[in-house]
Simulated scan of single mutants.
Amino acid sequence: MTETNTTTAELAELEGLVARLGELTHHVTEQELGAEVPDEQIADILYAAARLFSAKRDRVGKIAWPIREDALNATETVVLVTALLDAADVNLFDMAIWYRRAE
Rank of each mutant, 00 (worst) to 15 (best):
E13M: 09
R68N: 15
I67T: 05
A87C: 09
Y99M: 10
A48T: 15
E13H: 13
F93P: 03
A35S: 15
V60I: 13
A64D: 09
R59L: 08
L84M: 14
M1W: 06
A12H: 05
E76M: 12
A88F: 02
D70I: 14
Q41W: 10
E32N: 04
A48P: 02
A55G: 04
A50Y: 11
Q41L: 13
L85S: 05
N5I: 05
E76P: 08
A83S: 07
D94I: 02
E32S: 07
P66D: 01
R20A: 13
P66M: 05
Y47N: 12
L92H: 03
K56N: 12
A48L: 13
Q31D: 01
E36G: 15
I63A: 00
A12T: 06
G61P: 06
V18K: 13
V90N: 01
E15A: 12
E13K: 10
A71S: 14
H26P: 00
D89E: 05
K62F: 07
R68G: 12
P38K: 13
K56I: 03
L85A: 03
R101G: 09
Y99K: 04
I67D: 03
A43Q: 15
R100S: 09
L33E: 12
Y99N: 00
A71K: 12
S54L: 15
T82R: 04
T6E: 06
R51E: 03
D58A: 14
E32H: 05
Q31H: 07
A35I: 15
L14Y: 10
A49P: 12
L72H: 02
T25H: 13
A74C: 01
R20V: 12
I45E: 09
T4I: 10
E30L: 14
R57P: 01
L11T: 03
S54K: 04
E23I: 06
A35G: 12
E23D: 12
L85R: 13
Q41D: 12
E15C: 02
A88G: 00
F93C: 00
V81I: 15
N5P: 02
G61C: 07
L92Q: 01
E30T: 11
W98M: 12
R100I: 11
A87M: 06
I97F: 06
N91T: 11
L24M: 14
W98E: 02
A83P: 03
E36H: 07
A35W: 14
D70W: 05
R57S: 02
D89P: 05
W65E: 00
K56A: 15
T6G: 04
T77R: 06
A102Y: 00
Y99F: 05
T7G: 01
H27M: 11
E76R: 13
P66T: 07
A9W: 05
D70A: 07
L14G: 06
W98V: 07
F53E: 07
E3Q: 07
K62I: 10
T6F: 08
E76C: 10
A35E: 05
R100T: 08
Y47E: 11
